[in-house]
Design a protein around this nucleic acid. Structure first.
Lengths: 202, 202, 202, 202
DNA sequence: TATGAATGAGGATTCATTCAT
DNA sequence: TATGAATGAATCCTCATTCAT
């Protein structure tokens, strides 16, 4: 009995996961509006109606999937940089992981940069939906630490967080549009240099 | 006769302009997909069919309007900073005008930040459509000047242009989402400071 | 369970049939272009979208319905004349059944004679669609048999088949245009006489 | 003044003629429904609105043009065969000219065979429109003469006229669908043979 | 839970026709 | 007469969502 129940729950979980994956894949490749619920259902190997057992509607599917994906990525990044105790190094490690993580999964980055800006469309209807907030909070925290520990000068860290995020996001966005995928491996170094040292000569 | 002809052309031009304005307004407020051609026609005070006398179809309407708007804005910015001969000052003036220009027309900024990222959807169909390219070219040119004239250190100016643009764009994007519109008047100073001097403490 | 499944399939088949009938009826009464998909859906007692579950689009609906109707009629005719072993008698029986079959279903004949000539419009798009080909092949085969077995003189049987078909088709077409529907019961006798004996005196 | 008036009338007549020609050409090549009034206007070198100075509406344009074309063709045929006094020879000459006339002007035959059957669509709205009636009357008259003068046996000449017409019409219709246009020069001989002598052996 | 047939509202686009010039 | 810009009704088709099984 217990075994069966667990099995059923696994199946349940896996069905939800299949829809989740299918949604990201489809949204990434074709965009939210060009993806039909039927497309997702087919990719996930379930019936159309089944989607509605796990998600309220198409908007909810996008929002939930988006939030979960961002959460997942942020958690991965946090875990990856946890060992780094120096806040400055940690901040820059975040960049590196952000870029790594996305450039190694093309679907994710396309989904991310394409849909995230389209999402203002959703903000009106779903005011709580602001997937990047967490990321900004993370960055601001690290910046505050850097300032507090004397690694950085005093500044408007909220604005600085947006600058950092906006830069990386736009670079990824441009990268995702190019056919030949050059490596972004060294980009984060230039990024760090500019932000850390500035552009001024001497 | 000549007068009449001129009159007719004026009327024609103004009808096109009305559609142009209505399109921006509607796309800004509701997004491309939630805006119907009928909505735009109604806003512009013309019949549905009239839209098709001036624009090939809905895609063409978005793309044309977008391109014209960006062109218009860039031209305005260029003109505004033309008197400034120092490339560094000119670069920073561009920031200021960019922020000014957009924050003084809410529809424009919403349209801009919402649709521009949705546009990957259009790149496939319309490879020539990349509305921000011109802007990036402008920034890169200014950066190259700064480097050449010794105001800035050597760097990957193409990447730097993306960093600058991405920063400003994201800041505007966040700003456009907040209900209470705080002034961004002083933001450009912080921006310049960070980019010019870096974040490092001395 | 098996019963239910069968039931569902029956319902499905009957829904398709309802659309089929409604399409013929509507196309016959108003012609292809003056019939909207909505009209057909209403006649069939289904929703507009349902049509697209059974037929790809409006063109496909016309073509499929047309082909099926012709096939059905030809099969009926073939079956009806199968017992007749003499090729001459069989040929003439085909005429009789053709006329009978169509004059007993007004919608069918109107549909047939109205749309079949409109169909050049479709040949470009759908080169395989030539609904009368089968009929011509059937007639030519019978004529060849008649010649081979000495019932008829040598002749261009392909052309002869077209003459026979064109005659009957036009007679039905004219008949379908008259308000008062006179019987065509004896017409086939005159037809046979003229084709068999010619018009010449003696 | 008189000269000017005549000139104006000529121009008027020629403008109408231009529309007439353009209509046939366009209807022939693309069919009635795929041809827009704008297409015709452009072909004729006039403004859209001008069409409505000469024809009430699109239906009227088709009907009028059709009737005039048929009238013209019939008159040509009648004139061509007028010298032939023998009714039998005259009848067969009509065939020859019918085929000649149409196969030497591809647009005409396409227009004719494509649109004429579509026309039941118009009969309801325009009961007087039956373009082939005149042709049938001509054929019946010739057949009656043949019978009266002992060239043919007694028969239902009304039906016979339809048989003759239907045959030729269908042959032309099939011919118009084939890409490679074989000559129909000798076809009328086979036609005559079958109708005159019958298909029977001996 | 899971299915997938059925629904029907919604929207882009075309084009015959009008009318001010 | 002639123009052609403007109109807006008409229509095919898509697709998110429901619900009987």
């Amino acid at each position: 009995m217990a075994y069966q129940k667990k099995n059923v729950e696994l199946k349940k979980a896996s069905k939800r996961r299949a829809i989740y994956q299918a949604a990201i894949e489809n949204f990434a490749n074709n965009g939210f509006h060009k993806t039909s619920m039927s497309d997702i259902a087919k990719s996930a190997g379930v019936a159309d109606g089944t989607l509605y057992l796990y998600f309220k509607n198409k908007d909810d599917l996008l929002i939930t999937v988006f939030n979960e994906m961002v959460q997942e990525k942020i958690d991965t990044i946090k875990a990856a940089v946890a060992s780094e105790t120096n806040p400055l190094e940690r901040l820059y490690a975040v960049f590196k992981y952000h870029i790594d993580l996305f450039t190694h999964n093309y679907s994710y980055v396309k989904f991310f940069v394409q849909e995230v800006r389209q999402s203002p469309e959703f903000y009106g209807r779903y005011p709580d939906f602001h997937p990047i907030n967490q990321y900004l909070v993370l960055l601001k925290g690290l910046l505050d630490d850097c300032v507090a520990q004397g690694y950085m000068k005093k500044m408007n860290t909220e604005l600085a967080a947006k600058i950092l995020y906006g830069s990386v996001d736009f670079i990824l966005s441009e990268w995702s549009l190019n056919k030949e995928k050059t490596s972004l491996d060294n980009v984060y170094k230039s990024l760090i240099d500019i932000f850390h040292e500035g552009m001024k000569k001497e």
